[in-house]
């Protein structure tokens, strides 16, 4: 049994202690379900006006979207690694990986802002049509979550540097990481629905 499994297995089969804490998981479920409801409404609206939605979707830039997805997924990888290193007692590496996570998160925001600015330049705002209403609201709420996630990670980064956490005591880091991964999860739903499938 690796050290990671050992740390985690104490929580196994305990319904009240999912990794990162039960509160964050309640939040994750509510968030995911909320976005799913919104996306279901979106899918329903699309079925009623397929042509307009297809036309609008063609105005999005799938390349930027794909790059951004890769950026976000990579930041998720570094966050997972940061937690793993912390569990193994490698504090320095953990700090470094957290910083990389934050930087990649900022890259995501930068690319997203560029995408937004292009849309605004073309006069495509919130009320352009139903597709773009959903586009702005869904990606906007997601972006808010990413920003909040970065703020949380910055706090964690400084606490890690101060040595507040170690291999045994790091539940806050796990919780913050879970929030960050939640942004990935939501994006896994948004990206194909908005950019890819029709």
């Amino acid at each position: 049994m690796s050290s990671e499994q050992h740390v985690l297995s104490r929580e196994k089969n305990d319904i009240l202690h999912p990794p990162g804490g039960i509160l964050i998981w309640i939040l994750i479920f509510l968030e995911v379900i909320t976005f799913m409801i919104a996306l279901s409404v979106f899918a329903y609206m699309r079925s009623r006006n397929a042509a307009m939605f297809a036309e609008s979707q063609a105005m999005l830039n799938p390349l930027l979207g794909t790059v951004n997805t890769i950026v976000l997924l990579s930041s998720g990888y570094f966050m997972a690694e940061a937690v793993r290193k912390l569990r193994a007692g490698l504090l320095k590496l953990s700090v470094r990986y957290t910083l990389v996570t934050i930087l990649l998160g900022l890259v995501f925001i930068a690319i997203k802002s560029f995408e937004y600015s292009q849309k605004i330049e073309h006069g495509i705002g919130l009320e352009y049509n139903t597709f773009f209403t959903f586009y702005w609201l869904l990606t906007g709420f997601h972006l808010i979550h990413v920003s909040v996630g970065i703020v949380i990670l910055v706090f964690i980064y400084f606490s890690l540097r101060k040595g507040r956490y170690d291999a045994r005591d790091h539940e806050d880091v796990e919780t913050g990481a879970a929030f960050w991964h939640m942004c990935d999860l939501i994006w896994m739903l948004l990206f194909p629905m908005l950019y890819l499938i029709n």
């Binding site: 509510l30 919130l126 009320e127 139903t130 609201l137």
Partner: peptide
Amino acid sequence: VPKYWLIVGGIFSSLEPL
């Protein structure tokens, strides 16, 4: 108000009973 309030209000107010 703009139409998107239909979506925002509809979704978030449906969550309130939960």
